[in-house]
Design a protein around this nucleic acid. Sequence first.
DNA 1: CGTTATAATAAGTATAACTTATCGATATGA
DNA 2: TCATATCGATAAGTTATACTTATTATAACG
Lengths: 294, 294
Amino acid sequence: MNLRDLKYLVAVADHLHFGKAAKACHVSQPALSMQIQKLEQYLDVQILERSNKSVFVTDLGQKIIARARDVLQGAAEIEDMAAMNKAPYMGNLRLGAFPTIAPYFLPLIVPTISQKFPNLRLLLLEAKTEDLVDKLTRGKIDAALLATTEAPGVLQSYPIFRDEFIFAVPKDHEKASRKSVDKEYLLQQPLLLLEEGHCLRDQALDYCRLSPMSTEYDFQATSLETLRQMIAAGVGATLLPKIAMRPDDGIKYIKIKPAAPYRTISLVWRKSSAKQAFLTELAELMKLCYMRHD
Amino acid sequence: MNLRDLKYLVAVADHLHFGKAAKACHVSQPALSMQIQKLEQYLDVQILERSNKSVFVTDLGQKIIARARDVLQGAAEIEDMAAMNKAPYMGNLRLGAFPTIAPYFLPLIVPTISQKFPNLRLLLLEAKTEDLVDKLTRGKIDAALLATTEAPGVLQSYPIFRDEFIFAVPKDHEKASRKSVDKEYLLQQPLLLLEEGHCLRDQALDYCRLSPMSTEYDFQATSLETLRQMIAAGVGATLLPKIAMRPDDGIKYIKIKPAAPYRTISLVWRKSSAKQAFLTELAELMKLCYMRHD
DNA sequence: CGTTATAATAAGTATAACTTATCGATATGA
DNA sequence: TCATATCGATAAGTTATACTTATTATAACG
């Protein structure tokens, strides 16, 4: 068996197409076909079901491919280790962030990071939490900014800061002149929310889980910026994370007292990552950035 | 990078000798040397420190080799999956058992197993718990009979049976005529124990942890059979697992009531093992064997 | 100071993987 | 229905790579 064979196999599983898989592996289609045939021959099992029009993965194949991904990731981590050893602060860092933190926190940290690590190529990816966790565990990204308190088994997290929620209302709202509101009041308010899949939506619903009011609106904003526009336009109120606050945007931000709800923003990476030490350093740097800003 | 290279590398790490490593890999020494050189060149780091007389592994090398072991194990598991798929009940099964269970439980189960799975080559290994867990996680054995209740992360366990402890005394012991003793009494007895490293010793000490008496003897038996001889010879008393009881061996076995201490014997294997399904079946079979005997 | 043990190097050979060109089978569409 | 396109498998020749044995270089040892 051979790492290359496994790479080819995984490529076919990803594309379900020999030609595309071959292209992705930068080899000709026959080369890839042959190696996979040999692998099947060597293992003496059928991994793929081919026809002229389609490729399927057998049940056993699924298991084999899953393990093959692990093996390839392990190999990649060996290469990473070597690279990190040579030049700890060089090379690519693929960093994910979920949509309701990315546009607010990244501008805060990216300049400092690029300044401190000028040889680092910071490749940023904005995606929903679920997607990021998946990409993390599959080794498609190196780290991600997440709002989950607990990370699953293979991942580990380093808390960066606590992002409080704040009550956002139009300037002409009945409470617009108040300095603060309390939970009792909030639970009785209908709130505009982001669409399904955003962790911010879940966190707001979680906080207000006793209130059926919160889901009253049938329109759901697709991004935090859209939501902000809607609030400013007087459509309704919502909970916004403090980091998304902006001065003079036509919105009145009202503190929630006592015990404002919050989300914890953490940097998360694979325990097995070769960038381990560097990522810890990076997380500390992010924390400093936030404190300087706050 | 290549699985073969990693295999060579691990072999050198294991032998700390290129020649022996080469022999273990069934290749000539130059072939192995060259591949490792190329690997180091490819990764552009030094993994091994060579001199004419000795080979050392660098710090980074340690990390790389550790990960390489994982990668190789993953690859081996892919092969296992294929083999198991072709013939679930064939091939080698490397089974470990700790010394105070092996000679008593294995004779009970081995005939049944070989009868039910005639094409299975059962390779048995007797070693101390710590050693077995190490061999398990490193993929040197497929499964082990252990008395640990909880298995660490990568392992999973299936309970086979509960093995109670019983108070073993010479025939002429003061309590030899009693039908049972209680914990209060036991805690005041000096007990003969096995030497360090035996889990049975730890379990007995654990049960009697309030009693300083139990460590009074400065002589420690090296095996359960030796211990049995010592009890029979009238040297002292001990706690024996019920499964080690034997009729007419010059020892009086006295029940501990109420709430006899016990150890739980489980079959343990790697979660990632390809023999997963088969091992569950095997564990069930062992359980049946025990119940039939009991 | 030769002998031994070690890993590295050299030269030649064998193996394996790659390339391009082609085939065979199936679906698509005028 | 027949030409055409698509896709994976096969064939033939080439290249790259890993292997072999023989040899060298270096240090330790008696």
